[in-house]
C-alpha cells in the first residue's frame, strides 16, 4: 500500500504532528515501505478467527465506589507548562 503525500499530511494532522512540506516525500516513501511489508498479513486466512482482545485470560475487575483521591491541585498542576495557580492553560479556543 503506497501512501501519497496528501495522505501522509492528513495522518500527520490527525496525529497532531507537524511535518514540513520538505519532509513529506521521504516520509511517504518510508511509511509506504513499512505498510508494504506488513501487507503480508493479508495472506493469512482469518475467516473464522475472533480477534484477540487481551492476552490476559481475565474479565474486567471492578473497584468499589469509594473516593480514594484527596484534593491535590498543586500536584496535578505542578508539571503543567504555563499552568496558573488554578488551571492548565492553552491558546484560546474559539468554538
Amino acid at each position: 500500500m503506497a501512501l501519497d503525500q496528501k495522505t501522509v499530511a492528513r495522518v500527520a494532522m490527525l496525529a497532531r504532528i507537524k511535518v514540513t512540506e520538505a519532509d513529506l516525500p521521504g516520509l511517504a516513501t518510508e511509511l509506504s515501505g513499512i505498510l508494504g511489508w506488513i501487507e503480508q498479513l493479508q495472506a493469512v486466512d482469518t475467516s473464522d478467527v475472533e480477534p484477540m482482545t487481551s492476552v490476559a485470560d481475565l474479565t474486567l475487575p471492578m473497584r468499589e465506589d469509594v473516593v480514594t483521591v484527596a484534593a491535590q491541585r498543586d500536584a496535578i498542576l505542578a508539571n503543567g507548562p504555563e499552568a496558573n495557580e488554578s488551571f492548565f492553560t492553552v491558546p484560546k479556543v474559539v468554538e
Binding site: 500527520a12 496525529a15 497532531r16 507537524k18 508539571n79 503543567g80 507548562p81 504555563e82 492548565f88 491558546p91
Partner: peptide
C-alpha cells in the same frame, strides 16, 4: 504540552499541539 512535559508554543491550540509533538 498541556499538563506536563515540554510545550512548543503555537498561535492556536492545534498549532501548539503540532509544534509540541513535532
Amino acid at each position: 504540552g498541556v499538563r506536563f512535559g515540554q510545550r512548543v508554543p503555537g498561535k492556536t491550540l492545534d498549532e501548539m499541539y503540532e509544534n509540541t509533538r513535532g
